Amino acid sequence: MYDSITVAVAGAGFIGPVHVEGLRRLGIRVKGLLGKDLEESTSACKQLNLEHPYATFEDLLADEEIDAVHLAVPNVLHYSMVKKSLAAGKHVMCEKPLAMTSEQSAELVELARKSNLKTAVNYNLRFYPINLNVRDRLAKDDGRIFSVTGSYQQDWLLYDTDYNWRVLADQGGALRAVSDIGTHWLDLIHFVTGLEAEAILADLTTVHPQRKRPLGEVSSFTNDSEKEQATETIDITTDDCASILFKFKGGAKGQLFVSQVAAGHKNQLKYDIATQSAAYEWNSERPNELHIGRRGDLNQVLMKDPGLMTGTAAPFVNYPGGHNEGFPDTFKQCFRSFYNAILGDTSAGESLYANFEDGHRELILCDAILESHEKQAWVRIKE
């Protein structure tokens, strides 16, 4: 089905190779990859068995075989690379956040509209089958949503010796934990519930106002044993954790806690959605289970099973019940939705991937979160 498409990936760090794997599992040809320089590009292509290392982004865009570009590069590069990709006539799948500011993302939304190209932001957590199932359940639920509570917690930046480019405001943006992982929760909740935030109260904390940066870059999620090298002390202004309250249109309330300094939590997103008829609780570290709470009936635990998945979820479940689908599968399924749209085949009845408008929404929310923290007051979301 996808043999008419050729893709190139920009980014040789943690996520770039994940994109390559997800694309290949769909049968999409990945011709080559761009690293920070030709040496890194060549090394990554050798490791991933890709045929073409690119020396520069301009070289990648000049390749007439490339139909779509996947951007898995530091946040500060997203805006310029998206603009160049659209100008070169390439479809774009961009890692989150879409840009460094909402002004930049607004411009990208408009450019995407004018381009007649398909554009997406990789909010892959939408594509756990359980989340697609919850979306269907809430769409059919006659009862209104009362509240949404949850968290996204990691521990990979727990120590002041933990360092990555994401901690730097000029590389990742003024927000870090909120932007890096909190926006996944924000997007997922909007996707499954349809709720729109109208006001936000936020409190941000920088646990380590100074960190020790190795004299020589390190990759994301580096083992502790690999960090023993000379360091320099640098000032940090970005958030390590955050507490956020939401008022949603229609009266529902929300609460989110985000942390990248929570020991033992490797990559845990949780939500609990309370409605008139039931409550739905999900934990990304047990992604194939959904807890369904009832008032006047037995509680249930739904295990991911294609025999029980209908509607939106059905086309995005590839393994039988008892055969778990996890993090790498969400990339494959997100890319399936994106390339189905490119090919004009939306068999699920809609394009389920996050588009640039969704990416822009998250940056508007981030603006409000930062403003609320600075004012220590409720802030209304700008339309």
Rank of each mutant, 00 (worst) to 15 (best):
S4N: 09
A8P: 07
A10G: 12
R25A: 13
K36W: 05
D37K: 08
E39G: 14
S43T: 11
A44S: 15
K46F: 15
F57K: 05
E58K: 14
L61R: 01
A68L: 10
K83A: 13
L86I: 10
A88G: 13
Q104F: 01
A106D: 01
E107P: 03
K114N: 07
L117N: 07
V121N: 02
N122Y: 03
N124A: 12
L125N: 05
V134D: 14
V148W: 06
T149K: 04
T149E: 14
T149Q: 07
G150D: 05
Q153D: 03
Q154Y: 14
Q154G: 14
D155W: 04
D160Y: 08
R166V: 11
A169W: 08
Q171S: 09
R176S: 07
V178T: 13
S179K: 08
S179D: 11
T183A: 12
H190P: 10
F191S: 06
F191V: 05
T193L: 00
T193N: 13
T205R: 09
P209Y: 08
R213T: 05
T222F: 00
N223F: 06
Q229T: 08
I236A: 10
D239Y: 07
K247A: 02
G251I: 09
A252H: 00
S259H: 07
A263E: 12
G264T: 13
D272I: 10
A278D: 12
S284D: 04
R286H: 05
D297H: 09
V301R: 07
A314N: 04
P320M: 11
F327D: 11
T330H: 01
F331D: 03
R336W: 04
I342Q: 11
T346M: 09
S351T: 15
N355S: 11
F356C: 09
E357C: 09
E371Y: 03
E374Y: 02
A377T: 09
R380P: 01
